[in-house]
Simulated assay, not measured.
Amino acid sequence: MERLSAWVHGNVQGVGFRWWTRSRALELGLVGYASNHADGRVHVVAEGPRPQLDALLNALRSGETPGRVDLVVEDFLAARSDLHSFVER
């Protein structure tokens, strides 16, 4: 189990991006959250097996998201196991 932290840059607020991300994460069996930040970025944190995390990261970069993703900056960490569902914050 690993933890993905991904900062998504672009036009990703007010366009259904967090809802879309939550749907993809739930389809992949991941837990975590997607949260808006004042600077316009969305922070996506997800935990699960690495192949599913890679699939979520690929989806974030796919060009099929709501809005427009210009850049995704990711980091993989050890899972903390403190998340129990995937939510929008």
Rank of each mutant, 00 (worst) to 15 (best):
1 M>W: 08
2 E>R: 13
2 E>N: 08
3 R>C: 03
3 R>M: 04
3 R>G: 00
4 L>D: 01
4 L>A: 00
5 S>F: 02
6 A>K: 01
6 A>D: 01
6 A>R: 03
7 W>I: 07
7 W>F: 00
10 G>R: 08
10 G>E: 06
10 G>P: 08
10 G>L: 08
10 G>Y: 06
11 N>H: 15
11 N>S: 13
12 V>F: 01
12 V>H: 02
13 Q>M: 08
14 G>A: 11
14 G>R: 14
14 G>H: 14
15 V>G: 04
16 G>W: 06
19 W>H: 08
19 W>R: 11
19 W>F: 09
19 W>I: 00
20 W>Y: 12
20 W>I: 03
20 W>S: 13
21 T>D: 10
22 R>A: 13
22 R>P: 01
22 R>G: 02
24 R>F: 00
24 R>D: 00
25 A>D: 11
25 A>W: 12
27 E>F: 07
27 E>H: 12
27 E>Q: 15
28 L>M: 06
28 L>K: 08
29 G>Q: 10
30 L>V: 07
33 Y>I: 02
34 A>G: 03
34 A>W: 09
35 S>N: 02
36 N>I: 04
37 H>A: 12
38 A>R: 14
40 G>C: 09
40 G>L: 04
41 R>C: 03
41 R>D: 04
42 V>A: 03
42 V>Y: 06
43 H>A: 06
43 H>N: 07
44 V>D: 07
44 V>Q: 07
44 V>P: 05
45 V>H: 10
45 V>I: 15
46 A>M: 11
47 E>V: 13
48 G>Q: 10
50 R>P: 03
50 R>G: 01
52 Q>E: 11
52 Q>W: 04
52 Q>M: 06
53 L>M: 01
53 L>A: 00
54 D>P: 01
54 D>Q: 13
55 A>V: 05
55 A>H: 10
56 L>F: 01
56 L>H: 01
57 L>E: 05
57 L>F: 01
57 L>V: 02
57 L>Q: 03
58 N>L: 12
59 A>D: 08
59 A>S: 10
60 L>E: 05
60 L>W: 10
60 L>Q: 05
61 R>E: 11
61 R>S: 07
61 R>C: 04
62 S>H: 06
62 S>F: 04
62 S>V: 10
62 S>A: 04
63 G>F: 04
64 E>S: 13
64 E>C: 05
66 P>V: 05
66 P>N: 12
67 G>S: 10
67 G>D: 11
68 R>T: 10
69 V>E: 08
70 D>E: 15
70 D>W: 10
71 L>H: 13
72 V>F: 04
72 V>I: 07
73 V>D: 11
73 V>L: 08
74 E>R: 12
76 F>K: 00
76 F>G: 00
78 A>K: 13
79 A>P: 09
79 A>I: 10
79 A>R: 09
80 R>P: 01
81 S>R: 14
81 S>Q: 15
81 S>F: 14
81 S>A: 14
81 S>G: 14
82 D>A: 09
82 D>F: 05
82 D>E: 15
84 H>W: 13
84 H>T: 15
84 H>M: 02
86 F>L: 09
88 E>T: 14
88 E>P: 02
89 R>C: 00
